[in-house]
């Protein structure tokens, strides 16, 4: 008999619908990843006990871990589905079912798709951009030494997957913590020669409720980040600057 992969998927047909677990058995092929497994189910949406069901809803786009769409809980852990290889997940244990579930800290849209727009709202509230005068030709930008570039580049690699937020014990609906990704972006833009003009505003924003103070330094973010952003370093640096800014503001504003 050809080998199959057992999958258990936590499903929810809409945000208010009850949660159900559906089991599937998908024909094994070498080098399968979770997104291709889900594609296989879409082609043949029949559960392990023979019931026809709807294809699984989930987000994906690039399929090469760069767009940040496909974060979900795979065997309970938050990671990117497109870079999660079945062979590695099952490592020597092919009968063990793979479990898939939506990220737990974000409102479920449907099945494995969740609404992560809060990150984009956060990026707005910290003004994560360089306020350029305009897009007309104003000549070359100021010089920037490679050392600065090397510090900024890794921060600029954040794919907004929200995994750092999902795994953070402090990111939840009672703290409403902003999460590591936004803090890292503040560092990125504060380091840009022109972007630093908004530095004070960003630092003040981050001292608001849910701001940088809510981090308990659990360091899960930096462990889990698929793009290996130096998140704890950013949190540390940014918090220092927020504190300095608050003290300054206390005496001068």
């Amino acid at each position: 008999m050809p080998r199959t992969i057992k999958v258990e998927i936590k499903r929810q047909s809409n945000p208010d619908a009850p949660v159900v677990i559906e089991k599937f058995e998908v024909p094994y092929r070498p080098n399968m990843n979770i997104t291709s497994l889900l594609g296989e189910i879409a082609c043949n949406p029949i559960t392990a006990d023979g019931k026809t069901t709807a294809p699984i809803a989930y987000d994906s786009n690039c399929l090469e871990e760069i767009c940040g769409s496909c974060a979900m809980l795979i065997n309970g852990k938050a990671r990117m589905a497109c870079s999660a290889l079945v062979d590695k997940l099952q490592d020597g244990n092919p009968d063990e079912p793979i479990t898939l579930a939506p990220l737990s800290k974000f409102p479920v849209v449907r099945d494995l798709a969740v609404d992560r727009s809060v990150l984009f709202q956060n990026l707005k509230s910290v003004k994560a951009w360089v306020p350029i005068d305009g897009t007309y030709d104003l000549g070359a930008a100021p010089r920037q030494f490679p050392q600065i570039q090397e510090e900024r580049y890794p921060l600029s690699n954040c794919i907004s997957c929200t995994i750092c937020m999902e795994v953070c014990p402090q990111f939840n609906d009672s703290t409403n913590f902003v999460g590591a990704a936004t803090i890292a972006q503040v560092k990125l833009f504060n380091m840009d020669p022109a972007g630093s003009v908004l530095k004070e505003e960003r630092l003040r924003a981050l001292a608001g409720d849910g701001g940088v103070q809510e981090c308990g330094f659990a360091q899960n973010c930096v462990e889990a980040c698929p793009k290996q952003l130096p998140l704890t370093e950013a949190i540390s640096d940014v918090t220092r600057e927020v504190i300095v800014q608050q003290v300054k503001d206390f005496f001068t504003r």
Binding site: S125, F177, V178, R204, L206, G208, D209, G210
Partner: peptide
């Protein structure tokens, strides 16, 4: 109303002070 974790309340509240 938005579900889930709410966005940053930029610059609002005193929790920063208490926390520090």
């Amino acid at each position: 109303p938005q579900r889930g974790v709410q966005p940053l309340r930029a610059g609002q509240g005193n929790s920063f002070l208490w926390r520090k």
